[in-house]
Design a protein around this nucleic acid. Sequence first.
DNA 1: GAACCCATCATTTTT
DNA 2: TGATGGGTTC
Length: 795
Amino acid sequence: MHGLNPKQWEACSYTEGPLLILAGAGSGKTRVITHRIAYLIEEKDVNPYNILAITFTNKAAGEMRERVDKLVGMGAESIWVSTFHSMCVRILRRFADRIGADNHFTIYDADDQKTVVKEALKAAELDPKSYPEREMIKVISNAKEQFMDPDEYEKSAAFGFREKNIAKVYREYEKRMRKNKAFDFDDLILKTIVLFQTAPDVLEYYQERFRYIMVDEYQDTNHSQFLLISLLAKKYRNLCVVGDDDQSIYKFRGANIYNILNFEDTYPDAHVVRLEQNYRSTQRILDAANAVIKNNENRKAKRLWTENGEGDKLEFMSYDSEYDEADGITDIIQQELLAGKNYSDMAVLYRTNMQSRVIEEKMVMRGIPYVLVGGTGFYDRKEIRDIVAYLKVMDNPADDIALRRIINVPRRGIGDTTVDRLQDIAIAEGISMLDAAVSEDYTAKLGRSGGKVLEFGRMVDELRRTEGVTELFDALMEKTGYKLSLESENTDEAKTRLDNLDELRNKIVDYEEGSEMPSLTELLEEIALVSGSDDSEDDQDKVTLMTLHSAKGLEFPVVVMAGMEEGLFPSGISLDSDDPDAVEEERRLCYVGITRAMQKLYMTSAMYRMIRGSREPRQVSSFIEEIPSELIINHSAGRGFSRRSADDSLFYGDSFGGNSSGFGAGSGARSFGRGGSGNGSSGFGRGAGSGSFGSGNGSSGFGRGAGSGSFGSGNGSGRNRNAQSAASVYAPVKRGLSGGFTPSYGVGDTVKHIKFGKGTVKALEQQGTDWEVTVQFDSVGEKHMFASLAKLKKV
DNA sequence: GAACCCATCATTTTT
DNA sequence: TGATGGGTTC
């Protein structure tokens, strides 16, 4: 047991009773948890069998499993390391019958839920337009989280007409879930709690088993997860929760930050350990993060620090449009690449998925390799869902939702009317649709298509007898005609689908080889619980593009936070909300973003952005203003685009001008022609030396003047002076990205860019501490870029 | 059953 | 703007 700092050690060795570990970003949290487990076993003689470690994602569980195995060795396999949901599945597979359910159940994902809601709406004779599926799912989920069945939901408040109807939908929804022997994700937690409440012996069994419980990412737990943990920990009270209230960013999906904030109220004897030493980022990055997050009211005081050194300043750039922003981002990436970074060292983070489109376009144009995290996962693809639906029917013939999906896929002439009638019969007889489909008595009632239904039912019945999961998959592809129908399409799209199905087959083979007792049930469970996106097969050299949310838990040497605009980040919805916590949650998200960066952090924004089809002026995110100016270089200072400045007329609007239109403002730009302390192209050593920019003041004078909070209090003329002095302050710094940069070329000069080759300087305009230079390149046409980033060399 | 048109509606996402 | 879903038409 070595290599832990005193706080980490304290967290590891405090083993009895409730313990709250407030683990700041990058504070070595996973290390603490794994070491703590090892300590329990080795020093406290705890039987590994009595330890439970719960995480949120399968990825986290996998990583923890691996690290625990490495650290503990013998006996490690009997430690339960699992997600909330897979833990509950495991318990329910064994005991669900104790609450009147079937131990053999199917798990419904969001898509299945939607289908069930659709059917429920139809059954309740409600118009999906006035009762949108999305909302229904949310209401049902909330109700379940609050432990309310449809009756309780209906009774629970001064509900009106609408709520009564929603209760009806909820009731119909539940009816179908039961009939299909299905649980949704909320059910997995909920039913386990119900089980514990109705079968005290089962609860006792698990309490005895899990004498030491650890919960990771505790700030993400919702109410029912809290209850579940409380029940399990009630007897021995050895509950260790680890989390960071400042990183609670999942309220929208039920996370309750008060679980962690009030932990000490729930457990008054709780011991609290704060892990504030950060091993990831530079001090400047942490200072920025601290400065932003301290604006939140609702939090436990914390302050991150590091021994990593001061590091470079953050950089903020404002661009004219989202296209220019994307261009700027690719510039940043290329410059960092030249500075010695790999593509895979860099990530671009944004608030909304929609922002990725433009960035992707520019990345493609510039030939920058990237991976987009999120988006449609493997298991969301139509062909995969189709085949999985077949597998689900094989596994659980009561699953009418799955059956409906595939009864006419590929086309076998069974239309909607027939399917509806089949369903009516099944409901009337209290049997499954498949049962009805294999009985001539029933199919005879279906008229002309009855024969086809019967044929389908018999085919499914026969397939069900196939031994082995891979064999079943193969038989399925052939006998259902799915493969044939794709093959005969003979299009590129169909080929891709076939490839994807091959991929699915590979996964199945992998599964069968890796599992001790492979079964279709377990395979489907894995598919439902492990959302395909987690297999990061590529350790290739690519820039990562993802939302701020998906970045949680990750780290990158270079991070670009894009779209730092009020209304986008923080989101408009949060700004409009009357709940003050809404903006605080956005701020936490900002904190998460900042703390992903190890060495360099860039923030970008656009002055105009296409929002729902119309071009709208934007203002810079208030989060930028929360970062002290001595920590961040503002490459667009002095441009006064804050509408909130005392004088609205300072709104410079378009000065960046699209492509050609010269940059307005004229300003004595050129006069600075040269100077150029050896910055040329050379330079860019590694990060190291950093410390050099002491004297934070240099860049001041930009950014929010005094209290006003607005950028660039329009002192147009003063700018040059500022820049010059800034330049001299920073002159000795080798890294080109620091503040105050003086180009060593002027308009009309021929310059050389490392990537774009030769070109002629068309325009040069000062932008805060930096210069925007427009170059007509011989090969790639006109580009504009920040001089400090572009690394142009006069030839 | 496919092709088309119009209306509508747009955070964040894991299990 | 652009994706999506429902409804209509052939």
